[in-house]
């Protein structure tokens, strides 16, 4: 394991994509080994900022990201993209199809992309994304675009760790804008009216601006229009995003998010140790139960054996 860890460590440092990819998985599969790999590389001040991109389906988020990402990368950032798709609540599987729109962009640049499923997340999605963020930081990435599913708990989890939030909308969705969870409208930093080549784009922009000016407090939020067909407004959006990024200090919420991570990882490691214990002692547990020992006493007896 020592050889493996140092090979991966070297790989991360060198930005080797295979090592990055393997480490993201390893953070989830084997946190103990992962912690060895990132020793010496991990620096909390270097955790990449997250640009969270959300919005209802059908607004062209993926295509927009495929055009936005290269511009951001070209302005001197080492950029990665994490795309999130919902897992099936019935089977636990998922169809991760976000790469369909990205391949041309990715093959001609150094942008790294990873597809992650929500996996019925109870905060578990944040964990997967955190694993990726920490791995990427060790490989020198400073900015990560996270494209989220667009609604629900998973969406909020991502937005909670984003330093800049883009809400992507499209004309003709009037009703949906009303119906959108108030929360998302409140925390978005930049409102993007995509598909601006369609009629109703200006109206949509005006109604968002009206909404914003009706809110209390100083309004620093921006509204902009983009069209992936004509490529209009993409550069402006990149500028707005990076401008917002410069003004953000993520130390506080990274610290909070990491605190939650420590708790989660500890619980997970503990749970794995207990599984190992129960499996390794299956025979003696069975013997105890046969001899009439109650399950509670048997469990306590078992815990005595727990190794540090």
């Amino acid at each position: 394991m020592g050889v493996e860890a140092s090979r991966l460590s070297e790989g991360l440092k060198a930005g080797d994509r295979g090592s990055i990819a393997r480490c993201i998985t390893m953070a989830e599969d084997d946190p103990k080994a992962f912690s060895k790999v990132i020793k010496g590389l991990y620096d909390p001040k270097k955790i990449p900022h997250v640009i969270g991109i959300t919005g209802p389906p059908g607004c062209g988020k993926s295509t927009l990201i495929s055009q936005l990402a290269p511009i951001i990368a070209a302005s001197g950032h080492k950029l990665a993209i994490i795309a999130i798709d919902a897992s099936s609540p019935f089977s636990g599987g998922a169809f991760l199809g976000n790469r369909i729109r990205m391949e041309d962009t990715l093959s001609s640049s150094s942008i790294f992309m990873r597809s992650i499923a929500t996996r019925g997340a109870k905060g578990g999605l944040t964990a997967s994304v955190m694993n990726a963020l920490i791995t990427l930081s060790c490989a020198g990435f400073d900015l990560v675009i996270v494209e989220s599913v667009g609604s629900g708990q998973a969406d909020f989890d991502i937005l909670n760790i984003s330093s800049t939030i883009l809400l992507v909308l499209a004309p003709g969705l009037g009703d949906e804008i009303q119906a959108m969870k108030a929360g998302t409208m409140e925390i978005a930093d930049i409102f993007v009216i995509n598909k601006s080549e369609l009629p109703g784009a200006d109206q949509a922009k005006r109604s968002i601006m009206a909404y914003l000016s009706s809110q209390q407090g100083k309004n620093t939020k921006k509204v902009t229009t983009t069209s992936c067909v004509s490529k209009h407004g993409i550069k402006e959006l990149a500028d707005l995003t990076l401008e917002h990024e410069n003004g953000v200090d993520t130390a506080a919420f990274i610290s909070k998010a990491f605190g939650t991570e420590v708790d989660r990882i500890a619980k997970e490691l503990m749970s794995k140790s207990i599984d190992k214990l129960t499996q390794g002692n299956a025979a003696s547990i069975a013997k105890m139960l046969d001899e009439g020992v109650d399950p509670y006493s048997a469990a306590l007896e078992l815990l005595q054996k727990l190794e540090k």
Partner: peptide, 9 residues
């Protein structure tokens, strides 16, 4: 330019 198909599943 080129065209990419929309999401089906």
């Amino acid at each position: 330019g080129e065209w990419k198909e929309p999401k089906i599943i």
